[in-house]
Design a protein around this nucleic acid. Structure first.
Lengths: 204, 204
DNA sequence: ATTTATTTGTATCGATCGAAACAAAATATA
DNA sequence: TATATTTTGTTTCGATCGATACAAATAAAT
């Protein structure tokens, strides 16, 4: 009954993600967005409402494609300490190989957007909670396998790993050095019962 | 020989800190700044050059008044694990009692400014390094007192605590809940040899 | 083929951005 | 008191901001 869209919705959303990821919400202009998305301003407003709603859609797509994809992919192959180690290995690898220092759009938004937008704050908090829950599942599995000392509280340890993740994401934008990022994680892994510990003090 | 300034340089810098702290560099307009600082636009430009240089001055003053003040004050009274615990207790207390969720200007800037400003990136990295060094001194003292297990690498543990601090600062802007922030720290404190451990699993 | 509904491109809206031009005001020095 | 130097307040610059008015273009439904 009407003229069809000339652009692919997911493709232009990916372009929007790239803009917001690199420069944040406030510093990305609608003209930048429209240009990178390959559409006109009115098409952008027609399809997404306004800049803030476009951001919300881009953020949700990022959460799906980046965060949840990684979590489900890793949990399909690993459990417990292994899953956590692979997770951080991947995050650090990505952080060190990103010349634009984009970090993580969720973490960036937690700092830039959440304090000034109550609605998005709830969304972003929920994303962080998803990550915390992932760590919680890994730690719960480790606990059931007897891989956690009794002194370790699973819920707190999940919060610790979430904190380390946030720390890595922040540090990687200001000072992306392997020694720093890996050093943030390594001591936390000693919370697990030592297996055939491959890296200890003095190993380096 | 010339007309004197009608405003106190430190006082207006404090007002600028407040602006940048709450809204960041890009989202704070020169008009907002001048208004909150109680001066006119031209006076601002005359005294500080431009918005970016004003930001750099405000950031340095913040680092002195907020970060270094806390570190030196705590190190004058505490050492080792105590210093670290008091540090985090204070940071968490501040984070939970801030209705504007300002977080930490250094951490906010590490995420917002550092990736896009090479000069400020170096400054901000140096600030983060100062914090890491503080943790390193605390951990070194603990190590010399035999309060650290041999499996703990001091340099890495300092990076861990820096990471947790960054994580707390990010989380406190998106989801400032005591259980979350304290939970991020508590497991890391088990890296120290257990003293008369006042809080363990199930204590809560 | 006509109608209807939506998207597209062009142009532009008022508001605000960082920054500065300019002259009046103010004070230490001569 | 006269001069030199800086700050101050008013005004405004060109650029850009988010958002839209409007009409031409497009295609499914009738």
């Amino acid at each position: 009954m009407s003229r069809p869209r000339a652009f692919d919705n997911d493709a232009v959303l990916d372009a929007a993600i790239e803009c917001f990821w690199r420069r944040g919400l406030a510093a990305t202009s609608v003209r930048d967005l429209a240009s990178q998305m390959g559409i006109n301003g009115p098409s952008l407003y027609n399809a997404f409402g306004d800049k803030r709603r476009l951001f919300a859609e881009a953020l949700e797509r990022y959460a799906q494609q980046s965060m949840r994809e990684r979590i489900t992919r890793i949990e399909a192959k690993y459990t417990g300490q292994d899953a956590i180690e692979v997770f951080f290995k991947e995050v650090i690898s990505r952080s060190l190989s990103d010349p634009d220092r984009r970090g993580c759009l969720i973490v960036n938004s937690a700092l830039e957007v959440a304090p000034h937008d109550k609605e998005l704050q709830l969304v972003i908090s929920a994303y962080l909670k998803e990550i915390e829950s992932f760590f919680g599942r890994c730690l719960g599995a480790a606990d059931r396998e007897g891989a956690l000392p009794g002194s370790v509280d699973v819920a707190d340890a999940a919060r610790l790993f979430l904190g380390i993740l946030l720390g890595i994401r922040v540090a990687s934008r200001a000072n992306p050095q392997r020694a720093l990022l890996e050093g943030m994680v390594r001591p936390a892994l000693t919370l697990f019962r030592s297996r055939n510990s491959p890296s200890k003090k003095g190993d380096r």
